[in-house]
Design a binder for these strands. Sequence first.
DNA 1: CTACAACCAGTTTTT
DNA 2: CTGGTTGTAG
Length: 806
Amino acid sequence: MRGYGAGMSNFDDSDAFEAAAAPVPLSQRAIGARPVPYLDGLNPAQRAAVEALDGPVLLLAGAGTGKTRALTTRIAHLLNLGRARPGQILAVTFTNKAAREMKERVARLLGEAVEGMPWLGTFHSISVKILRRHAELIGDGELHLKPSFTILDTDDQIRLLRQLILAGNIDEKRWPARQLAHLIDSWKNRCLSPSQLPRGEERAFDGWGGRLYAAYQRRLLELNATDFGDLLMHCVHLFQAHPDVLRSWQDRFRYILVDEYQDTNVAQYMWLRLLASAHRNICCVGDDDQSIYGWRGAEVGNILRFESDFPGAQVIRLEQNYRSTPHILAAASGLIAANRGRLGKTLWTEVEGGEKVRLIGHWDSEAEARWIGEEIEAFHGGHRAALGRRNLNDIAILVRASHQMRAFEDRFMTIGLPYRVIGGPRFYERAEIRDAMAYFRLAVSPADDLAFERIVNVPKRGLGEKAVQTIQREARERNLSLLEGAVSTVATGALGGKGAAALRQFTEAMGRWHADALDSRVSHVELAERILDESGYTAMWQNDKSPDAPGRLENLKELIKALEEFENLQGFLEHVALVMDNDSGEQTDEVSIMTLHAAKGLEYPIVFLPGWEDGLFPSQRSMDESGLKGLEEERRLAYVGITRGRELVTISFAGNRRMYGQWQSSLPSRFIDELPEDHVEVLTPPGLYGGGYGAAAQPFAPSAIHERAAQSDVYNSPGWKRMQQRSAERAQPVHRTPVVIDAEPAARFSVGDRVFHQKFGNGTIMGIAEDTLTVEFATGFKTIKAGYVQPASQAGSGGAMDDVPF
DNA sequence: CTACAACCAGTTTTT
DNA sequence: CTGGTTGTAG
């Protein structure tokens, strides 16, 4: 057993073990009437976490220390001891994914015997459940929510705000709706209603912030709608204003568990405090070193303050790591030790050996991508003896900013290395899904004005801005919904011939769909398909020549499939806003590329961390906006990145990077200086000065990189200097290695073959000249290097179009 | 109303 | 450089 944690003063090895120093292993004692096999195999700290059932508990769980296991076992224990029934445990997560995983694992621990946990879910989904029961209490006497309220997503929210901004005669150029949305969100994150805004803040947004916020909240009530931020804020205000209601929920939830506590914002914190204040049986699990969402309202302070917030709290540290090698843990620990405000933990492992964290600098971002591509091919081909032959699924590239991904996508496309981008737009955020949903929403609730506006002219019906304005005027004057207003507009003949005919057709069809939506004899799945067909929506994409059109049609099919799981359209719409996500169930062998944020909670045997350059990582913007706080959050992000790796972590940086089409030179990240050099091996970049892979590592310590930059071989090489000079002239770097790897593929193709191209979609080869193909795509003829296309049948492996859900 | 050209901004992301 | 939005001409 060895501890790592350079310079951490508050580390106390005995902490975790004292709590569990029981003479007889607990798993061998009879607890209650039933045996407790699930306690077997827990380490002492985990067992302590499971058994400290009463009172406030802070479970500081480092990366890879079996946090979820402790949490789910704790739930099983509560149930097994009869301390609570499933309905009396409140277990909160941030994401649906985490909630799902926890549900599955609790079910596995307890077998079929236990019914599901109704109150295991995200902050938002649980808040919705609570709010629906007390909707009438939200708002004022005049105007209040109804239990059937809808939940607007960010898009709806912004469109609503834009209308208010325009109505207030504010220049939307200088004061964009997006910014107002962010401002209002930040208020809601802090649980501030319009009347509670601190002086000064209400004057934000050109003096209109407070008033626009108030107007927006009023409009939401009129629409019987909430946004995501409201769900939490309304709950807190409900609890504060109605002690009897709060009391009933406090009584119901005998035990409270919270996952990822370091990511809670003020609203979530208040929500939890209110619910826990009576019995104080609250167990918060988190890792202050992994708090990386400060920019969206998370308060690390919540976890740092836990002991004073809940006096007498037990603090249990999970520090035994089951994921990474000692070198990886040591590198991560050394790095994070540079952060000030932290509670302090020291990860250790029983595992021995393993490779040091590798560090390598490259001339530019293209060389970096090229090198990583070659490394991956070597791992995949089994050319790294120590690691054996690896699946691509074992490998991940974690970047700071999504624009870094392109270099890798380009390169991997060229060499035909299958990859998958994780993250990206969510399924329900895709335009086609939102359009389809708007149709369904309008069919179910004809008064849904936002849905009406979204689809009245999708597909194009010749109903542009003018027509919509006419309808809006009509609706406002007669106090009707937009759909009713549209009917009325047709009747009064306020709209010209062509538009009127199209609008009549639209409203009549919608009338039929609405009737069918209410008719329980009509299958909602068939109705949904019919709506998309009759509205011309499906046809719109079928006629669309762009390469992503087939993918969109595919998504629509998936949407219909998802519908089958629900009783009716209403039920589907109720859940979809909160619970829909894109977890592609496909199991193909691909390298994963994602942002560091998206990687949190995941692990891979082999991890590449490119782009460690000052300004990019740590991000300049982060530091400019939040100073030291921002820098520390960046450092936590680096910590998260390193601790994703199980066996081998490779950090890299480039001296030049293309940004917005221009070459910019950069220095290695300051985080590289902070890596403990005993655990880092510095590699020599290939091709610079005859180095090559086999060359011995340069014997300079990473902590000296900045100091030695001026004299080191890398930075003194003629090539490097030439590049610096060239990039200053905005020229392309000298460094251009001919692409060797893809010299052969042309042979694989012959005229007439169907091929797939990332950008142009599917096409047919019309001619071949060496490695250059002439391909006919839907959009016309293109001349393409063979390396950029793949046989159409394999289009499933590695194209951006694979990034579709399910 | 649509199509195309000019213009501008440009981390991280869940619900 | 790119994608998204805005502005103008047809």
